[in-house]
Design a protein around this nucleic acid. Structure first.
Lengths: 343, 343
DNA sequence: CCTGTTTCTGCAAACGTTATCATAATTATG
DNA sequence: CATAATTATGATAACGTTTGCAGAAACAGG
């Protein structure tokens, strides 16, 4: 592979001139520019990005840390991140951490050594030393979807989970439901804590009792255990819910699976509502009513905020820190319906 | 950030010695090793991977080219690739090409400039110049899932699609089905051509007629058009199939959706069989019988073959080219059942 | 025609490693 | 004890860029 020196010798000039032509920096004669460009074409010269990065201290690569790409809601974020990155000339290194702090730390070490320009992080479940250290070093980083008090001061892109859950419950209430069950994920995550709080607040506002027997906590997407728990819940003689709000579409699909299995009709017997609006939710039967998160846009915006940090760092400019909460939206489909016959 | 020189000065030795300690290369005194290691710890020295890569010509990074991460079957491959890569100390750059040759070419250029060690490619739909050029340069690369005659000579990891389709039809036939519909994807892809051929061969072997009216070609996963086509197919007065073999689980889910919509019972009226065995197929209702592809393993194996090429290139060793076809397997669930009452 | 600016080009020093070669110090060999 | 082999270390040249500095050429203005 030809390098700058080869091109320089080929046209009988110095490397500096050739380099200047290629980066069109100040003051280069139009005619030499033409000659150099022709030679570059001729020799099929391509710049060595490693050498360049070593010199300028930027790699045009960012890292994306997520728990597991197999979580459906993440694929949309990943696409948003990658599309935005590609448009800005960045490439994305994908890192599945499985919520494992060791893997996370290992990735962060390796990628810091490789001088990636920044991190988009959606993976952390507990206090992560590596991430805090990264932050203290002033490394550009953005948190997406998940957020943490101990990491305040870091740019964050997410939704208002409290309000989203509140609105979901309100929606079900206004359809006439009075026994609204709840399926929560890992209660250690702020995401689910906030949704739980929104749910409770809504119950309070509508004078509904908080009934722990129709609440499932720490549900794992797609697990057998979840299906079992739902079966238990709906087979309670007195406390059977007339609607279930699941805090992810995948949980909602498991709920629907369990209901089918137990001969419950959706939405005739029980309404089901999800969260996320993954593409699949319009394909299942019945199609799923859900609280849509703008996942793709969350990914895009995360990258934009990250780039803003990177630019600021490079030019010693100012970056204004912010926490961005994007709007959610109720998507009405077939899995919920008005409860007409109230007694 | 401290560099080698800093460490060297700190302990009053030369950079070479420090470097030797860190790469434990030949002949370094145990006591100096201890001193250097302590200093490294002390100063928090971390090697600059860019400089290292520039020197040794390896980046420990590979590129993964796929059409779109939002295709569910791909997420399992991606996980397989990443897990295998991580175990070998490699990181993965994810590239969604949307089947677009320009995007693909752009990615390939950028990543070649960055000296990625190799490519795992699952994206190509048509003749791709960039990929052929890459191959001619001797760049390490592996094709996964999709394969092409014009790219023969490249390591490939896939399944025997002909046989898999044949076995699927055989399975349905043995359940008593005689009108077996087929839903195919983009017929321009060898993957679907081969599955189609397997389907035809099976029909021939079992003396079933080939009925174009129960075959849907070029179906797009999750599209409205597909649901419409399926509705048309099952509402034909004379040619309604008693089983439908969809060539992806996502297509099967659309099929099931269309059947539900038209009051057809699954599997009582019509059996449905999918292809892939994505995690979702055990969550939908009814759970989906499918031809399982070992997608995760395909991803893993692809990386292993790629690494073998990379090693061979680095050491001027020999790499034995191969096309690996992994076994598929029928996963029986609820969406298919024996047709007892035959007339 | 001289001085001062602008435009153009080259030299050489980084960026942070690895690796070759030479040399010094130590140990083994007969 | 002389010589050869082994072990340990340091200089130095790459790897392929970018960039500050300096000098040369071109072009003004007076």
């Amino acid at each position: 592979m030809a390098n700058l020196k080869d091109v320089a010798e080929y046209v009988g000039m110095s490397v500096s001139t050739v380099s200047r032509v290629l980066n069109d920096k100040a003051y280069v004669d139009p005619s030499t520019r033409r000659i150099v460009l022709a030679a570059v074409e001729e020799l099929g010269y391509r710049p060595n990005a490693l050498a360049r990065s070593l010199k300028i201290g930027r790699t045009y690569t960012i890292a994306l840390l997520i728990p597991d790409i197999q979580n459906l809601y993440l694929t949309m974020i990943v696409r948003g991140v990658e599309d935005a990155a590609r448009q800005e000339g960045l490439t994305v290194i994908l890192c599945n951490t499985d919520e494992n702090t060791d893997i996370e730390a290992e990735y962060i070490n390796v990628l810091r050594d490789r001088w990636v320009d920044g991190f988009v992080i959606s993976s952390i479940s507990k206090k992560s030393d590596s991430i805090r250290r990264l932050k203290n070093e002033g490394y550009p980083m953005v948190l997406t979807v998940r957020y943490y008090d101990y990491l305040s001061g870091i740019d964050t892109v997410a939704v208002d989970n409290f309000n989203a859950a509140y609105q979901a419950v309100k929606y079900l209430y206004e359809l006439g439901h009075r026994q609204i069950g709840l399926v929560l994920g890992d209660i250690g995550l702020n995401v689910y804590k906030d949704r739980f709080a929104g749910y409770r607040e809504a119950l309070r506002d509508f004078d509904l009792p908080l009934n722990e027997r129709i609440i499932i906590k720490n549900a794992v997407d797609g697990s057998e255990a979840l299906i079992h728990d739902v079966e238990m819940m709906v087979n309670q003689p007195t406390d059977c819910p007339d609607a279930i709000f699941a805090t992810s579409d995948l949980k909602a699909i498991s709920v629907m699976h369990a209901l089918h299995k137990n001969g419950k009709q959706i939405p005739e017997d029980i309404s089901v509502m999800g969260f996320d609006d993954i593409p699949l939710s319009s394909l299942v039967h019945p199609t799923l009513t859900t609280m849509k998160q703008p996942l793709y846009e969350i990914g895009q915006l995360s990258v934009q905020k990250l780039i803003s940090q990177i630019e600021a760092k490079a030019t010693n400019g100012q970056h204004i820190h912010s926490i961005e909460l994007l709007p959610t939206e109720i998507i009405s489909r077939q899995s919920t319906r008005r409860r007409s016959e109230r007694l």
